[in-house]
Amino acid sequence: MPLRTAITLLAVSATALSAQAPDPAALMRRSREALAPIQRIVGQWEGDARAWEGPGEPIAVRQHEDVVFGAAGTVIQIRGTGRNPQSRAIVFEAAATIWFDPQANRVRMRTHRDGNSVEPEIEIRPDTIVWGFPVPGGRVRYVIALTDSTWHEVGHYERSGARPIQTIEMHLRRTAPPR
């Protein structure tokens, strides 16, 4: 009798859980809809960028961004590489993933660089992506302005009561359409 009761309870629990599970097709549709406002970022981009690592002149790089849909169009994967314009040596590499989180009902982002990762706050506006995260003494904030053929990104270090300090600026052009 105890084994039969356990099996019955297990079957009832499994049925209840499966009834609560989200419909995979509906979840994929919601994910794609949430990413639709920024789908124009998908493609290959290249252009000039400058990065400030402290006082003085910025470092100039030739920046390439490869952006693809992944997981059946439910995530956007970004891979950025900055190279020295003369030697072509890599001076900057980063990666990011943007996805819709159904439990939180919002778009999320995770970035990776130099062995570190952070999950910044992300705000999607028409033709603009704003993302940033806290750092000691303030926060870092990036604004990406997009058109079908251009990507202009500016980053700042912000401290309370002080003028923002520019950390990066990229002027990219689409070099290949989405794959």
Score class of each variant (00 low, 15 high):
P85R: 02
M109H: 04
R179L: 09
N105S: 15
V75R: 08
Q44I: 00
V91K: 08
S149I: 02
V75P: 03
L146V: 03
Q86D: 11
T175N: 09
A96Q: 07
V61L: 15
R30I: 01
R108E: 15
P134F: 04
D48T: 12
V118I: 12
W131F: 15
L17C: 13
A16T: 06
R32A: 04
L3N: 11
E153Q: 14
T97I: 14
G82C: 02
E121A: 12
G161V: 11
L146T: 06
A21E: 05
Q20M: 13
G138P: 04
L17V: 06
A6G: 01
D148H: 03
V154D: 04
R32W: 07
Q166R: 15
P177N: 07
A60E: 14
P134S: 07
R173P: 00
T175L: 05
V12W: 09
H152C: 03
G47T: 06
A72Y: 13
I38P: 09
H152P: 04
V135S: 00
H112S: 10
P134N: 09
I129K: 10
A104Q: 15
S18K: 11
V107N: 10
A14Q: 07
I90Q: 14
L27H: 02
M170N: 12
A104C: 00
V91Q: 14
A21Q: 10
E93T: 14
E153C: 10
R88D: 13
R62C: 04
A34P: 03
E169I: 03
A49L: 03
R163S: 09
D127A: 14
P22K: 07
P58I: 08
L146D: 03
E53Q: 07
R173M: 05
L27V: 10
A94C: 02
R30H: 03
R139C: 02
F69K: 10
S31I: 08
D101K: 03
P126H: 02
I165N: 00
D114I: 01
R30W: 02
R179W: 02
P177S: 12
I122Q: 01
P126M: 05
A176D: 06
A11V: 15
T175I: 15
